[in-house]
């Protein structure tokens, strides 16, 4: 990301329940709440595990690897933001079926994005007053021989 200017983005309102998600990038880690009793990842974050209804949920790092479930090449400049066209995608983390993020696919040609494509997280840091947040974006997994 270093060779691009960081675009304007509307930032999330960080609260206790979602802080792990929006600040994990400081350590380079994608984090989700996970039930410590049955292993269920909980997203969007909730105080209770939807599987066992227990409250024993706490943030855990995941691998940051995911698969593109669907995407769209967005051509419309809705507001200040990344230069159009850019890819909006829904990705599913490899750790658990059905745990998805809407995100942007970056560091590749917009026309190269495919459903089923393996991707990995990259973080974009934004200052928010005295706080900082890290927006999780995804890039294609590099194949052997590249970088």
């Amino acid at each position: 990301m270093s060779d691009h200017e960081v675009p304007f983005r509307i930032l999330p309102r960080v609260i206790d329940l979602n802080r792990h998600f929006w600040t994990g990038g400081e350590d380079g880690e994608l984090r989700f709440l996970r039930c410590q009793d049955d292993g269920t990842y909980v997203h969007p974050p909730s105080p209770r595990c939807p599987n066992c209804l227990g409250k024993n949920v706490s943030p855990e790092d995941v691998s940051g690897r995911a698969t593109v479930v669907t995407y769209s090449i967005n051509h419309q400049q809705w507001m200040p933001g990344p230069e159009v066209p850019y890819v909006v995608a829904i990705v599913e983390i490899v750790e658990q079926e059905g745990v998805r993020l809407t995100t942007n696919i970056v560091n590749c040609d917009v026309h190269a994005v495919r459903i089923g494509m393996p991707v990995r997280v990259v973080f974009e840091e934004h200052a928010d007053g005295d706080e900082r947040v890290w927006i999780p974006l995804f890039e294609p997994m590099k194949t052997d021989g590249e970088q």
């Binding site: 675009p7 509307i10 309102r13 609260i15 809407t102």
Partner: peptide, 18 residues
């Protein structure tokens, strides 16, 4: 100074408001 909460936090930071 708008900050996205609820569902909107999962789409607005990704320039997907529509």
């Amino acid at each position: 100074s708008f900050r996205a909460g609820s569902f909107m936090q999962w789409v607005l930071p990704f320039a997907a408001p529509s």
